[in-house]
Design a protein around this nucleic acid. Structure first.
Length: 519
DNA sequence: CGCTTTTGACCAGCGC
DNA sequence: GCGCTGGTCAAAAGCG
């Protein structure tokens, strides 16, 4: 599932550009020129080999030779004349050289066709890979939902109704669970109970509850027929309607709850860009713009328009401190196939959201054992700040910071109180092997963000030796990491100035405002 | 003409 | 209750 080798196959890997099929023949043309030059330079080794092969294929050469004479007589004469003055041509007789060149041309043509076929095959494989990745992502989402459902069912069966009262008293211990179980607790408790919980909760939970309510409003607005059809219905509204009813509809609730959770989970990408927005391969429609408090730059709101009713939205805003940094916050998951160009970012956001949700949904140990947390397990022991999970945000948000330079990586390590790990992780080795510094960047938590217990423990439990093995295993095994890495690499390769290039994939290389989104 | 962007209005939550 | 804020809507304008 490592997709980045595929993504690196072409400039920005835009499928709209049939580069592979075009470039290969072009390369073949270059090879053709180089072939003749090297043939003259490399003395007799090649000639001898070619001559031997000419004898084998003499019959074909003659046939083509006759055809060439019938169509262009001067060709043969010129070639003979040209090689008459050559010392190397005297190694074989003139007929042999003539046939050899013609045969080489034929071989080049055949090679070109083979390359073209190979390019087409690569293109097909890319499409298959994209489709497979898409399916994987959707399956992963379903898996997360099912795991959540199973856990909830188990939890309900084990604790029963007395757990309802315990929840009120457990207070902060339930923070991680409550934080993510945005739907089910709402379905289980009445609005008064929610108020009680909220009033007794720590500040983070207060914020979470407010976000829950805010999300409820947000989702209630989305309960248009269009939205219902895409699976992003209003779970909280369903929960509200079912609050007084029995729990016989638990699975439906859980399903919608999981979807709502995925909908609410946000993935924020910080990247340096002079372009108004990131070119992530999706089609977006701007539906609003607001001046956010504390930031002179307006915040723009976009909706995915690649499919009717796609619930994915994103917010784009420039960093107030550094205008060159573009903060793009994605919310939701696409309900439609994505082009390869869009897969990297979509996969990254989906994987990050899955990791975020699964890690925070599970208990601490479960979160550690969850395969989707390999990303966190792997990245956590490392340095710097590729990804930041924020519990203080209105929604659970994971921030992928693609703005840090290599020099900052080590500096930030020392600045992060939770990241005083020795620089011996597998990523250090990977960095030395020439991979971008993205590999050395890590997921970390601020102290104020440490409420994600499921993801916090690994930072303290893994020693340096485990880091190496965990990193190696995760690199090889975890598609989430691969997806994130692919996106990161793509972003790095594209570079901060490369949104123009990204746009050029679609023939638009101007710095545009919103039309950048419509590739 | 259809689609997208702009932008003011509107809504709901929250804090005081 | 009021004001602030974030988020969304929808009519008008712009664009190809």
């Amino acid at each position: 599932m490592f997709r980045f080798p595929v993504s690196l196959g072409g400039p920005h890997d835009n499928p709209k550009q049939p580069q592979s099929s075009d470039e290969q023949p072009h390369r073949a043309m270059i090879d053709e020129v180089d072939f003749f030059r090297s043939e003259k330079r490399d003395d007799q080794n090649i000639i001898t080999d070619e001559t031997n092969r000419v004898h084998v294929k003499r019959e074909n050469s003659r046939v083509v030779d006759d055809d060439d004479r019938s169509t262009g007589i001067n060709t043969g004469l010129n070639l003979l004349t040209a090689h008459t003055g050559s010392d190397e041509s005297m190694v074989d007789d003139g007929l042999s050289v003539d046939m050899e060149e013609k045969r080489s041309k034929i071989e080049n043509v055949q090679l070109r066709e083979e390359l073209k076929k190979a390019a087409e095959e690569i293109q097909r494989l890319k499409e298959m890979l994209s489709q497979t990745t898409n399916n994987f992502n959707s399956l992963q989402m379903q898996l997360v939902a099912v795991m959540r459902q199973q856990e909830d069912n188990h939890h309900l069966a084990m604790t029963g109704s007395k757990d309802m009262t315990n929840k009120r008293h457990e207070g902060s211990e339930m923070v991680p669970r409550q934080f993510m179980e945005l739907g089910l607790p709402t379905a289980e408790v009445s609005s008064e109970e929610r108020t009680t919980v909220r009033s007794r909760s720590p500040p983070s939970l207060l914020e979470n509850s407010s976000s829950r309510q805010r999300g409820k409003r947000l989702l209630e607005r989305e309960e248009s027929p269009e939205t219902q059809s895409n699976g992003w219905g209003n779970p909280n509204k369903v929960s509200k309607h079912n609050a007084s009813s029995s729990n016989d509809n638990v699975s439906a609730i859980d399903q919608s709850t999981a979807e709502a959770t995925m909908r609410k989970a946000r993935v924020s990408v910080r990247a340096r860009s002079e372009a108004p927005t990131l070119s992530d391969g999706c089609h977006w429609r701007k539906y609003g713009q607001k001046m956010a408090k504390g930031n002179p730059c307006p915040r723009a709101y976009f909706r995915c328009t690649m499919a009717v009713g796609c619930p994915v939205r994103k917010q784009v805003q420039r960093c107030a401190e550094e205008r060159s940094i573009l903060i793009t916050t994605y919310e939701g998951n696409h309900n439609h196939p994505l082009p390869p160009a869009a897969m990297y970012m979509a996969s990254t956001t989906t994987a990050a959201a899955s990791m975020l949700l699964s890690g925070s949904t599970m208990s601490s140990q479960d979160g550690l054992m969850n395969p989707t947390n390999l990303f966190a397990r792997t990245m956590l022991p490392c340095s710097s700040s590729m990804a930041t999970i924020s519990a203080s945000a209105p929604f659970p948000t994971i921030t992928l910071d693609l703005t840090e330079s290599a020099s900052n990586v080590n500096n930030q390590t020392n600045n992060n109180p939770l990241m005083q790990f020795p620089q011996r992780s597998g990523f250090t080795e990977l960095n030395q092997s020439g991979l971008p510094q993205m590999m050395g960047q890590a997921l970390y938590y601020n102290q104020q963000q440490s409420k994600f217990s499921g993801l916090q423990i690994p930072t303290q439990s893994l020693n340096a030796g485990e880091n190496v093995s965990a990193a190696t295993a995760a690199i090889a095994a975890n598609p989430n990491f691969a997806a994130a890495l692919a996106a990161a690499l793509t972003s790095i390769i594209n570079g901060p100035n490369n949104h123009k290039n990204g746009d050029s994939n679609t023939g638009n290389n101007n710095v545009r405002t919103s039309s950048v989104e419509r590739q």
